[in-house]
């Protein structure tokens, strides 16, 4: 899981990130920030791959992505390994 952070006060609501997200994982808020803009928010943080295409299009540097935690990556691998081993077990059964 990537650590994406959207700074709602920097966002001017241009929506360019929304169109850019390959997973359709960004939407505009129903509330407004202090500058009066509806701002971008992540729909499902678990679903974000950290591809940063949104950041490439954000004119306001409102989106940041922090380093992926190594543990995060390993955890994903472990779970998939576990899953596959379970599947293996199933197949063996």
């Amino acid at each position: 899981m990537a650590k994406i952070k959207i700074d709602s006060e920097k966002c001017k609501g241009c929506c360019l990130c929304v169109a850019e997200c390959p997973r359709g994982n960004i939407r505009m808020s129903e509330i407004f920030n202090n500058s009066g803009h509806s701002f971008a928010e992540i729909i499902d943080i678990e679903n974000c791959t950290g591809c940063a295409l949104c950041c490439q299009m954000c004119p306001d540097m409102a989106i940041q992505i922090e380093d992926e935690k190594k543990t995060g990556k390993i955890a994903i691998k472990e779970s998939s390994q576990r899953k596959s081993s379970k599947e293996l077990m199933k197949k063996l059964e």
Partner: peptide
């Protein structure tokens, strides 16, 4: 800092 550019302006990019 927040810029003075309009929403969606390319200057920020």
């Amino acid at each position: 800092r927040n810029t003075h550019y309009c929403p969606g302006c390319g200057h920020g990019i």
